[in-house]
Simulated assay, not measured.
Amino acid sequence: MWRHIASNVLTFLVVLVFLLGGVILWGQSEYNARGPLEEPICLRVERGSNMRAVSRKLQNEGAISNGTIFRVGADYTNKNSQLKAGSWLVPEGASMSEIIDLVTRGGASTCGTEVVYRIGVTDSEIEVRELDPATNRYVEKAAFKPGAEETPDAYETVRDQADTRYRIAVAEGVTSWQIVEGLKAVDVLAGEVTKTPPEGSLAPDSYEVRTGDSRAAVIEKMQAKQEAILNEAWEKRPDDLPVNSPDELLILASIIEKETGVPEERGQVASVFINRLRAGMRLQTDPTVIYGITKGEGVLGRGLRQSELRRATPWNTYVIEGLPPTPIANPGRASIEAAVDPAETDFIFFVADGTGGHAFARTLDEHNRNVARWREIEAERKTD
C-alpha cells in the first residue's frame, strides 16, 4: 500500500514538474513574443513609481497581455529595481522584454513634452511641443517670445514635470552675440557667459540640455562641434583652394552662409567668391558691410546706404582686398563644406532674382541685365 501511495506521489510530482516547466516555457514565450499594441504609445513613468504601477498602466493601454508575466520577467532579469522615470516611446507590437528594456535603460526621454528654445537670425522663440506617438511628429502646444509679460499655461505646466526635455535650436547664420543673448532666455540653464565667443566658433545645431546645465558648458559644446566640423573640412580641401588656413575657411563659409538662404545655391555662391579670390577681385558682398556696422549685435533692419558701401571698415569687402579679418556669423556645416567644395562655374557675379534665390552671371553685361531686372521687381513690389 505504501509503495502504491509513494508511486502515486512520485507520478504527481513528475506531472507537476512537467506542468511547471510548461508554464515557465509559456511565460517565457509570452514575455518575448510580439505584443498586442496596435500603434505606438507614449508611456510616462512617474518618479517613485514601480513595476506594478507600470504594468497596470501598460495593460490599460493594451500594450501587454499579462501584468504578472511582465513583473516576473522584470524580476527574473534583475531589472525590477532599475525603473527610470521619464516618458518612453513604446513602439507598435513591442514585446514585454523590449518594454522592460525601454523603461530601465535610462537616458533622455524618447517622447512626451519638449521645450525648444529657438535662436534665429532675425527673431527668437520658445516653443512647447509634444510628440504624437502615432505619427512620430511633434505637435506644437504653445509658442511665445522670450521676455513675454505672460507665458502660456502649457509652458508653466511642463516646467513642473520631471520628464520634460529641453532643447536649444541654433539657426545657421546667427552671430555669437545673438547666441549669447539667446542663451540668457533659456531659464533652465545656470551661470553667466562673461565674454562673447569669437565669431564663427559656434556650430549651429540642436542641443539637448538638462535643468541646471551651465551656459558656459553649452558654449563649450558648440565650440567643440564647430572645431570638429572645420577640421574635417580643412583636411578634405583641394590644393588650389585660395584660402590659407582653417580660420580663413571659416570666414569664407560665414559669407556664403549670409549670402543665401537657398541650400541648393551654396555651391554656386561659393564658386563666385572662390573665382573672385583667384582673380584678385574684391568680394563686394553686402553682408560684410552690414557686419561692419552692427558688429553682429542685432539686425540692421534696413537697406544699406551708398555712403555705407563706400565707408571703410575692416569688414567692408567693397573697400578691402580679399577676406575680412573675422567671420561675420556662425556658418553651418553645409556652408563650410561648400567653401571647400564649390560648384565648378565661371560665375563672378550674382544678384537677387525675386524668388528668394539669385541670378548668376559670368560677365558684367550679363550681370547688369540681371540687376536691371531685379530693380524692376523691386519697383513692382513697392507699387503693389
Rank of each mutant, 00 (worst) to 15 (best):
S206M: 03
L249V: 12
A148R: 04
G212S: 09
T175W: 11
M222H: 10
D153Q: 10
G212F: 05
W234D: 14
V170F: 01
S271H: 05
V158A: 10
A270W: 02
D163W: 04
K225M: 09
S245H: 11
R282N: 09
L183F: 00
R215D: 07
P197K: 02
I274V: 13
L252R: 05
D240V: 11
E149I: 12
E150G: 11
E149D: 12
V269Y: 02
I256E: 03
E156R: 14
L249T: 11
A253T: 06
K195W: 05
Y166I: 00
E259P: 01
D205K: 06
E150M: 14
L250W: 02
R215A: 08
V188T: 03
L250S: 03
E220S: 11
W177L: 13
L241A: 14
K236G: 13
W234H: 10
R266A: 02
E232D: 15
A185H: 04
P263N: 12
A190M: 09
K225V: 03
Q268I: 02
L202D: 00
D160A: 10
R276Q: 08
D213F: 00
L277Y: 03
G182Y: 00
E264R: 08
N275K: 12
A203T: 01
A217R: 02
V269M: 03
Q161C: 11
E172Q: 08
I251L: 05
S201L: 10
R215Y: 08
I219V: 10
I229L: 11
Q226N: 11
R215V: 06
A233N: 14
L183V: 00
E172W: 03
A169T: 03
G182V: 00
R210N: 14
G200W: 02
D153A: 13
N275P: 11
T151A: 08
Q178V: 07
L241V: 10
E232T: 12
K225I: 02
E192S: 15
V269A: 02
P204T: 01
A224G: 09
E248W: 08
D160K: 15
A154P: 02
A203S: 08
E199G: 05
G173Y: 07
G280Q: 14
P146M: 01
S214T: 13
I256F: 09
T194D: 10
Q226Y: 15
Y207K: 00
L283G: 02
V243N: 14
W177V: 15
T196K: 02
A171P: 05
Q161Y: 10
A190H: 08
D163R: 03
E149P: 09
K221I: 04
I219Y: 01
T151K: 14
P198A: 13
L241C: 15
S176E: 07
S254V: 04
L283T: 05
A216V: 08
I251R: 01
E257V: 05
D247L: 04
A148I: 05
